[in-house]
Write a protein that binds this DNA or RNA. Structure first.
Length: 891
RNA sequence: GGGCGAUUAGCUCAGGGGGAGAGCGCUUCCUUGACACGGAAGAGGCCACUGGUUCAAAUCCAGUAUCGCCCACCA
């Protein structure tokens, strides 16, 4: 017994902690600055500094880690750039919350102190999620950790802003924006989340000037009436044609507004008359623009009604709604209301209902940058996986609209913009001007900061040193693959592509993996507020990091999936299985053995032939990002082929007396194990690396696979010489024969310790070679000895047998004195029925002329074979029935 | 309103023109010296529905239903 001490159960935590510590200390994950040879790079989607690891991060981290580790094993210089996003609103909210606990508002301490507080907060809590990635086993370059508010990064962001301003893409405009009254900031269209809600649709009467008539308009927001500047009807609406050109009176404010005709008005909706509030509704703003109507703001930046609302001024717009309706009711101008389901825009950060309102903001027109960004996906310079997301991306890019990039926050990249109040000059520059270049007067800096997504759009190159021409930038840009969740394709991926093309003249990555969303077990989204989230760290605690990774990969596919803890448990069991298989090998191998492939027995030839296929398959699956399938292939191979069959068969030789055989099988086992560890290492880095360390190190002539650390080993490559189809065929027959023997004995209640002397009937001895070529194996697996091998059944000496069919051969299993006639009858009947059904089905097909005529010859041949097989089997069963039970079989 | 995706075993999901698969759960048996996080043998599916294409459809096409997700300016 070799000197290997491995407990019978794999305990992940000690191993994970120890290995990760070593890897980090040795700088194993640090990307070379000036690598020679191929490189492979990934930039992590930077999580918010405020974040902690959730299921999406865990899956995405695992995917990226698999890729990085796999490519490292292919010999590439890898860089996985890690870091965090300053996440303007989210982080500001966190710190504001902290202040609130002290009874303070940010205004109480001022902007500079507030910023200091945020930085302190980041120092304290900002690395939480990075530490959590380490627990997952992620091979990130932690020495190159970046933050979107790093000084150099900040400079890069301002540079891009100034440049885009100078190119005319960025401009300032008074425009209807999405205003979040709680955040006190504008947000972009993409940051508005529409939620379905049932509200009331109110029917309100607007008197028509100079008549006793009125127009009834339908609105969900009566409180916006203080900003009404028209009433619109459809030009083809016969009900209202006569009023067009007249004036209506907006109730409560008695404003006289024109009645206009516009195509946009749907005569079918409500009353067919629409109140126009250009200051608070994007549609209305559009109509107002067409008709040259003024916009009036009636709601201020805090969401309160302003002086336009008369004695309602100062009240929260939403809360004032019932009072306004009451007032209208008193005036007889409220007609009715009805339930109305519609969608309402809310802030994606805080859920507050968005107020569209007019505001002076900075915008970026995306048209110029969008064109090449569409092209590079259409011409395949960037591939999306699954491919359909590329189409979704292109579709969105085609309809891209200006992006509101300014935010009224204190935490973020402050705009490099200065104003002169004396002459209204606007200066956009990297450096603060000492004075107004026009009039020499004083200047003040814009208070606003940039949308967080503006800076994260530059992540793939700003992290590598842009605008400096650094070695890292040269080596690792464009990055290889980006892996992300689909909800930030527009917010982030699209913008990175545009900015990458603009500033680097090349795509930021070659491929984009859009991984599935892991839903809660009940099918809802995982979310903290719903309480449906599952903490991946708890999974790591309970099952281990490898198990968590494996489970996540296994359950992920191309579509969204419900989380199932069983999959993680499966990962744990698999890690343990691998551990114990390794234990069997490491404890059982001959002390003098070194890894070496020397397939001598049929099982050896089979397992290495299979290993060869699996190596190729796994490489292909990793490269095509099919990680779920990679997990399945590895699981099946290791568990169902290696453990279930090969190891069991190998035991006979491993524990045998023959020194040569022991050495031989030991070498094979070690070589096999090494390759398995390599195949699995990208998915399960810890358990594989730990086992790898326990491999015996031969002093000289060691297998090239054996390296100090699996991390730096080469990914296993098949030797073409391993391929052995006949061994695979023979083992398929062997496995079917053993399973058949076990099944028959189980059904017939044969005592398990009974030794059976079986006859093998095989026309082609090659088919039986796995049975005949390793007799110890049959004994090991089902306690049978081979009495003889014959080509024809009539060569077998008379006796009572039951038959077991396997591809290309039949096993005759002796039954003397062991069989209960009732059980045997049931067994034979069951098999006969199945054979009869097979025969009928094959007959039906073969008697169909068009099938014989049109189906491919091999399919027809297969069907003939089936028919022959079924007929033989039936005849055989009938004979046994007669011999053994003295009855004729009738079906 | 447009688009995309899903519908397969009790559950969670693979598969994908030529005899339905996995894990968990279930039944029976097994503490054999790698592993009970294990082993052996089983039971369990009209592959949502309706049509079409085809010699052959769970698989391809069309439609229907249900669910989910995006996008969109119906107040």
């Amino acid at each position: 017994m070799a000197d290997v001490s491995m407990p019978a159960r794999y305990s992940p935590h000690e191993v994970e902690e120890r290995l990760m510590k070593e890897w980090l200390q040795s700088g194993a994950f640090h990307g070379e600055t000036e690598p020679v040879g191929p490189t492979y790079s990934i930039v992590i989607p930077p999580p918010n500094v405020t974040g902690s690891l959730h299921m999406g991060h865990a899956l995405n981290g695992t995917i990226q880690d698999v890729l990085v580790r796999y490519h490292r094993m292919l010999g590439a210089s890898t860089l996985w750039l890690v870091g965090t996003d300053h996440a303007g609103i989210a982080t500001q909210n966190k710190v504001e919350g902290q202040l609130a606990a002290e009874g303070l508002r940010k205004e109480d301490i001022g902007r500079d102190d507030f910023e200091r507080r945020v930085w302190e907060w980041r120092e304290r809590y900002g690395s939480t999620i990075i530490e959590q990635l380490k627990r997952l086993g992620c091979a990130c370059d932690y020495e190159r950790e970046r933050f979107t508010m790093d000084e150099a990064y900040h400079d890069a962001v301002l540079r891009a802003f100034v440049d885009l301003y100078e190119k005319g893409d960025i401009y300032r405009d008074l425009y209807l924006v999405n205003w979040c009254p709680r955040c006190g900031s504008a947000i972009s269209d993409l940051e508005v989340e529409h939620v379905e809600r049932t509200d009331k649709l109110y029917y309100l009467r607007y008197p028509i000037l100079g008549t006793d008539d009125h127009l009834t308009v339908a609105t969900t927001r009566p409180e916006t009436m203080f900003g009404d500047t028209a009433v619109a009807v459809n030009p083809d609406d016969p009900r209202y044609g006569r009023y067009v050109g007249m004036k209506a009176v907006v109730p409560l404010v008695d404003r006289e507004v024109p009645i206009i005709a516009d195509e946009h008005v749907d005569p079918e909706f409500g009353t067919g008359a629409l109140k126009i509030t250009p200051g608070h509704d994007p549609n209305d703003a559009e109509i107002a623009r067409r008709h040259d109507l003024p916009g009036i703001s009636a709601i201020d930046f805090t969401g309160r009604l302003n002086e336009q609302a008369g004695d309602f001024a100062g009240r929260d717009a939403d809360e004032a709604r019932p009072a306004i309706v009451d007032r209208l009711t008193e005036l007889g101008l409220f007609e009715r209301s009805e339930d109305y389901a519609h969608s309402v825009g809310t802030c994606y950060r805080c859920g507050t209902v968005i107020q569209p309102l007019l505001s002076l903001q900075w915008f970026m027109d995306m048209k110029r940058l969008a064109a090449p960004a569409i092209e590079c996906v259409e011409d395949g310079r960037i591939d999306f996986f699954p491919h359909r997301w590329g189409e979704v991306y292109v579709e969105w890019m085609r309809g891209i609209r200006p992006w509101c990039v300014s935010r009224q926050l204190w935490w973020g990249h402050r705009l490099p913009v200065w104003y002169c109040d004396d002459c209204n000059e606007v200066v956009v520059a990297l450096e603060a001007p000492a004075a107004c270049p026009q009039c020499g007067g004083p200047v003040r800096r814009d208070e606003d900061v940039l949308d967080t997504w503006f800076s994260s759009a530059m992540w793939p190159f700003a992290t590598l040193g842009w605008p400096e021409s650094t070695p890292e930038l040269k080596s690792y840009y464009p990055t290889s693959t980006l892996s992300t969740a689909r909800d930030i394709i527009y917010l982030w991926v699209a913008r990175m592509i545009m900015m990458g093309l603009e500033y680097m003249g090349d795509v930021p990555f070659r491929s984009v993996i859009v991984h599935p969303t892991i839903l809660a077990a009940d099918g809802r989204r995982m979310s903290k507020s719903l309480g449906t989230g599952i903490d991946p760290l708890e999974l790591i605690d309970e099952y281990g990091a490898d198990a968590t990774r494996f489970g996540l990969l296994y359950m992920s596919s191309v579509q969204d999936v419900r989380f199932s803890a069983e999959r993680i448990e499966m990962g744990r069991n698999f890690a343990n299985k691998l551990w114990n298989a390794s234990r069997l090998i490491l404890q059982g191998v001959h002390p003098a053995a070194t890894p070496g492939v020397e397939p001598v027995t049929p099982a050896d030839r089979w397992i290495f032939s299979r290993l060869g296929s699996v190596c190729g398959e796994m490489a292909g699956l990793y490269e095509s990002f099919d990680f779920a399938e990679a997990a399945r292939v590895a699981y099946r191979f290791v568990w169902n082929e290696v453990c279930d069959w090969y190891l069991e068969i190998a035991k006979a030789r491993l524990y045998g007396e023959d020194e040569t055989e022991r050495l031989q099988v030991s070498g094979n086992l070690l070589a096999l194990l090494e390759r398995i560890l390599g195949l699995l290492h990208p998915m399960m880095p810890f358990v594989t690396a730990e086992v790898h360390r326990n491999l015996p190190r031969a002093s000289a002539g060691a297998d090239a696979q054996t390296q100090a650390d699996l991390l730096n080993a080469r990914f296993p490559v098949a030797d073409p010489g391993w391929a052995d189809e006949s061994a695979e065929r023979a083992m398929v027959s062997f496995i079917a024969a053993v399973a058949g023997i076990r099944s028959a004995r189980e059904e017939l209640d044969v005592p398990r310790d009974a030794v059976g002397r079986v006859w093998i009937v095989a026309a082609d001895p090659g088919r039986a070679s796995a049975l005949t070529g390793q007799p110890g194996a049959l004994r090991q697996l089902c306690g049978c000895e081979i009495a003889g091998v014959v080509a024809q059944e009539d060569e077998v000496p008379a006796g009572r047998f039951t038959t077991v069919a396997a591809p290309g051969l039949t096993v005759l299993l002796p039954l003397e004195g062991l069989v209960d006639a009732g059980k045997e009858r049931a067994r034979l009947l069951g098999r006969a029925e199945k054979a009869a059904a097979d025969r009928a089905r094959a007959n039906a097909k073969l008697s169909n002329e068009r099938f014989v005529e049109k189906a491919p010859p091999e399919v027809v041949a297969q069907e003939r074979e089936r028919l022959a097989l079924a007929e033989d089997l039936l005849a055989d069963i009938a004979r046994q029935y007669r011999e053994r039970l003295g009855e004729d079989l009738s079906l």
